[in-house]
Simulated assay, not measured.
Amino acid sequence: MPAPTARAIRPETAHLSGVSVDYYVRLEQGRATQPSEQVLDALARVLGLDETERGHLHRLARQRRRRAKAPGGRIRPELLRVLDLVNGAPALLMDHRLDVLAANRLAGLLYGRPIPGLNIARHLFLEESGHGLYADWENCTLDVVGLLRLAAGKYPEDPRLASLIGELSMGSERFRRLWARADVRARGHGLKAYRHPLVGLLELHHENFVLPDASGIELLVLSAAPGSPSEDGLRLLAGLDAAGDDARPRVVRAE
């Protein structure tokens, strides 16, 4: 049996949300100005949106009234000192565009490429080394597209974000398909698996720390469970280049 079309489900969704079909269609097309909080909450409930998706819906509805300016992503010296204190785990500072602004030496060794210019989305979708690094590449692409979609809802007038999305759309069919789904995801925590060409499989827990200064920067730390093969792998990875680079964070951009 074919799936119901959007046209077929509109009357039911509108009825359950307490609005007319015509008003619901205008909401879909962005022609309804300033919908009430009650209408948005009703739509979120009927559509079964989670907390992240509900917030995204409210932001989209408020865009006509208030345009959020994209944060500049400035890196305070104190943040670099904190980054320098993270030992035995890859750690990096990243903005809402998934640009890596600074990283410790172990993060550079994990990604296997220079930190300056590294964008996680571009690395994942457009660079061959990125495709091979992520053991669960398909799920990682879902997360990254959802994060960029969420950022685009917050900062619709960010030209650099729009340029990145255009570049990814032109260069990756999978990105185009996932972007068309309009899914949103929030950064969280959990296990990610990396297949490093020198030390093998690394199962690392990623933890995101949102900075409280409205800079749009987050600290990401990737840690291995104590006594695990992944902890041994990180030690081996750190030792491979111990005599080379120094361990200071690499600042990519401080605008």
Score class of each variant (00 low, 15 high):
residue 2 P to F: 03
residue 3 A to E: 08
residue 5 T to E: 07
residue 6 A to C: 09
residue 7 R to W: 09
residue 10 R to E: 15
residue 14 A to Q: 03
residue 18 G to Y: 04
residue 22 D to T: 12
residue 22 D to Q: 15
residue 25 V to C: 06
residue 26 R to K: 14
residue 28 E to F: 08
residue 28 E to Q: 13
residue 33 T to E: 08
residue 34 Q to N: 15
residue 34 Q to W: 08
residue 38 Q to Y: 01
residue 39 V to A: 14
residue 42 A to M: 08
residue 42 A to F: 14
residue 43 L to C: 11
residue 44 A to P: 13
residue 44 A to W: 06
residue 45 R to V: 05
residue 53 E to R: 14
residue 55 G to D: 12
residue 57 L to Q: 05
residue 58 H to F: 14
residue 58 H to D: 02
residue 58 H to G: 04
residue 59 R to S: 07
residue 60 L to D: 03
residue 61 A to M: 03
residue 61 A to K: 05
residue 62 R to F: 04
residue 62 R to L: 11
residue 64 R to Q: 13
residue 66 R to P: 00
residue 66 R to D: 05
residue 69 K to Y: 00
residue 72 G to Q: 02
residue 72 G to F: 01
residue 74 R to P: 03
residue 77 P to T: 06
residue 82 V to I: 14
residue 88 G to W: 03
residue 93 L to P: 12
residue 96 H to W: 00
residue 99 D to Q: 12
residue 99 D to T: 02
residue 99 D to N: 15
residue 100 V to C: 04
residue 101 L to A: 06
residue 102 A to C: 07
residue 104 N to K: 12
residue 105 R to G: 13
residue 111 Y to C: 09
residue 113 R to W: 01
residue 113 R to D: 00
residue 114 P to L: 14
residue 114 P to N: 14
residue 114 P to T: 13
residue 115 I to D: 06
residue 117 G to P: 11
residue 118 L to S: 08
residue 123 H to M: 15
residue 123 H to E: 07
residue 124 L to P: 05
residue 124 L to F: 07
residue 133 L to D: 03
residue 133 L to F: 08
residue 134 Y to W: 12
residue 137 W to H: 12
residue 138 E to M: 04
residue 139 N to H: 09
residue 142 L to K: 07
residue 146 G to T: 05
residue 148 L to E: 03
residue 148 L to M: 06
residue 148 L to V: 05
residue 148 L to F: 02
residue 149 R to P: 01
residue 149 R to H: 11
residue 151 A to H: 02
residue 156 P to Q: 03
residue 158 D to M: 06
residue 161 L to H: 07
residue 162 A to C: 01
residue 162 A to E: 10
residue 163 S to V: 01
residue 166 G to A: 13
residue 167 E to N: 04
residue 167 E to Y: 04
residue 168 L to P: 06
residue 171 G to W: 08
residue 171 G to N: 11
residue 174 R to S: 10
residue 178 L to N: 07
residue 182 A to T: 04
residue 185 R to W: 04
residue 186 A to G: 15
residue 187 R to E: 12
residue 190 G to T: 12
residue 191 L to P: 00
residue 192 K to M: 10
residue 193 A to P: 01
residue 194 Y to R: 11
residue 195 R to V: 01
residue 198 L to F: 00
residue 199 V to H: 10
residue 208 N to F: 10
residue 209 F to R: 02
residue 214 A to E: 15
residue 218 E to P: 00
residue 218 E to R: 15
residue 218 E to M: 09
residue 220 L to D: 02
residue 220 L to N: 11
residue 221 V to C: 10
residue 229 P to N: 03
residue 231 E to A: 15
residue 232 D to P: 00
residue 233 G to K: 01
residue 235 R to V: 07
residue 236 L to K: 10
residue 237 L to H: 01
residue 238 A to I: 01
residue 240 L to Y: 02
residue 240 L to I: 09
residue 240 L to M: 10
residue 243 A to S: 10
residue 244 G to I: 03
residue 246 D to Y: 01
residue 246 D to E: 05
residue 247 A to R: 10
residue 254 A to H: 05
residue 255 E to T: 10
residue 255 E to L: 08
residue 255 E to N: 09
